[in-house]
Amino acid sequence: MSAFLTPDTLVLLLIEGLLLALMAVLLPSLWRLARRFDIGRTTPEQYALEKRAYLAGTLLRFMLWVKIALFVYFVYALDHLSGVITGAMCAAGVINAWDYGPLLLGWKLAGLYLFGSWLVLHRLDLSRENLPFSRLKFRLALGLAAFMGVEFALLIGYLDALDPATIVSCCGTLFSTANVSALGTLLAIPKAWLLGVFYALFALIVASALLRRSGLAALFSLLFLPVALLAIISFFSTYVYELPTHTCPFCLLQKEYGYMGYLLYFLLFAGTFSLLSAALAAKLVQEKARFALGLWLLGGFVALATWYPVGFYLKNGVFL
């Protein structure tokens, strides 16, 4: 039986398809806007294009919100499918059921950052009288359309490859250091090193944000994201599960752990995105960067992640 007919995947396909269709409808307008939009002209064509620009902005904002909701739902659906796919005990096994499954997940995540950045650009553009970034943003929107097309193809390929009858691996084998893959090698990095880098990067982000060095803040945030994910997999998750051998970034999303993974990942992704977009905005319009929100979110993430080992130590008097 194929995985296409479960309600979860149907809804995913329906909404992704809808967004793609909207994008397709928008594409001719975007093409013209990217080539012909010029705020200096006062022709009827320019007037019509300005109207079109509002449509594009509204639609893309709508898409972003739907994409955020859909990303959460996608992760939930993966977790739910682990009940059907043989051998999978959490989303880790399900996403790895296809070789490009992890790519799909990464692609979707990257998509959120890209859509978000586009909207930041869009807001900056509208906030200036002369709409300085309009041509740029419509060119970038064309890129977003291509990005979405690839994402949809990946999703179809993934759902097609999902087969309840084939046995997949459980997170216990996927995230072990014995795993002969790049990830296995990365997980073999000593935890002390990893944690050192994790906290050092966070300190650097805070310092560069307070000193208003937006370029550095953005760079460190970008570096922080993979380091934080690695640290969750190899260190913090074990304290959530209270089991030194259980290293998995997906079981966090399950009921047994109070769905805390959703909060943890929200803080991480929203925090890094907020910092990146603040830095981007500061660069583009030469303003003082607004880092406060990002710092709070990221600080919340670090505090929440740190709480688990500390709490474990307070309760048991030892570290795992």
């Binding site: 309600p7 979860d8 329906l14 909404i15 809808l18 909207l22 449509l55 909701a69």
Partner: peptide, 15 residues
């Protein structure tokens, strides 16, 4: 799931 299956479609139709 029900929300996602219905409301975005509605909103898309009214944009």
């Amino acid at each position: 799931l029900i929300f996602l299956a219905t409301v975005p479609l509605y909103m898309a139709a009214v944009i």
